[in-house]
Design a protein around this nucleic acid. Structure first.
Lengths: 158, 158
DNA sequence: GCTTAAACTTTCAGACTTGAAATAACCGCG
DNA sequence: CGCGGTTATTTCAAGTCTGAAAGTTTAAGC
């Protein structure tokens, strides 16, 4: 395990006695997430010749078979509009995604998986789930429930 | 809160009954992390005219006043060597970091914060901690301790 | 000494990402 | 109808990031 990089980084007044511990928790959260992301990225690259952002977009579109607008897509993935445009551009060039105009609103386009995109994603999804399952094999049902609660409390602040 | 994009994405045999729940937990973890990263990025951009990767590098170097080799730096931040080179290049151009050769090993360079880099980082660090503290204000001491344990168990697999 | 493997850094192409600006289309209201 | 504000998407410059390749230096074995 690597060291936390940005700790003890403030000669602060320590108004909140939990402040330092929250900072430590954030750093740990970030490290665990990055480590898992790196493993999944490696897995997708070696076994499916694709990338994490492509997988994420395809997963979002798979989930909603009727498609998503570009804005809804970028909101779902927590990335910028420009980013969604770029990734979908490449997926569309590769025949995995298609943009179609939307009736009644000529501003909007709907991105959907093509049949091939569907096949390709479904071929990856089960293996991806196994990979994630392996990464977090150390967590039992109680851990998962506790984590769920904690993450919910954490994101409640926004 | 946005929807989980890649759920139910496998018509799998469900060998491990926890598999789906681990996948859900991973998606939630990713969403919380990205949301917090986006907020911190925004904060650093607006209030300190800098970026998350720059902050991360400076934090790592601040923590080790004697500096880090480029390899150690990239390992600490969980990024590639090429990435570390690029970010340090820009920080060095801006006078916040300096590379110095290492005695006895002419392959290695040591990256350290300059005096100005030190000042600039310390000016950001306290505010950054307050920002993180605010983001996770919903977590009390027990939550933080539970989270610590869970993340430790999760990263034990690696 | 010589040769081979390993470690360290940089370079490079291509992909990803942001934030701002530019277009275009919708909507409410006077 | 026309105006002004909002929403949707793309474009763009600059930065971030990866993985592979290249170059340099060190270490280890013979």
């Amino acid at each position: 395990m690597t060291e936390s990089p940005l700790l003890d980084a403030a000669p602060e007044p320590a108004q909140d006695p939990l402040s330092k511990r929250r900072l430590k928790a954030w750093i740990r959260l970030l490290n665990v997430t990055r480590q898992a992301e790196n493993q999944l990225r490696e897995y997708l690259r070696v076994n499916h010749d694709t990338t994490l952002p492509r997988f994420d977009v395809m997963a979002a579109l798979w989930r909603r078979r009727d498609g998503l607008s570009m804005s809804d897509l970028s909101r779902a993935l927590l990335v910028s509009n420009g980013n969604a445009t770029a990734v979908v551009d490449r997926l569309e060039r590769d025949g995995l995604v298609i943009r179609t105009p939307v009736a009644n609103d000529r501003r909007t386009v709907r991105a959907t998986l093509t049949d091939e995109g569907m096949r390709v994603f479904e071929a990856m999804a089960a293996a991806h789930e196994r990979e994630v399952n392996g990464l977090f094999a150390g967590l039992d049902a109680a851990d998962l429930e506790a984590l769920r609660t904690i993450l919910q409390k954490a994101s409640a602040q926004g």
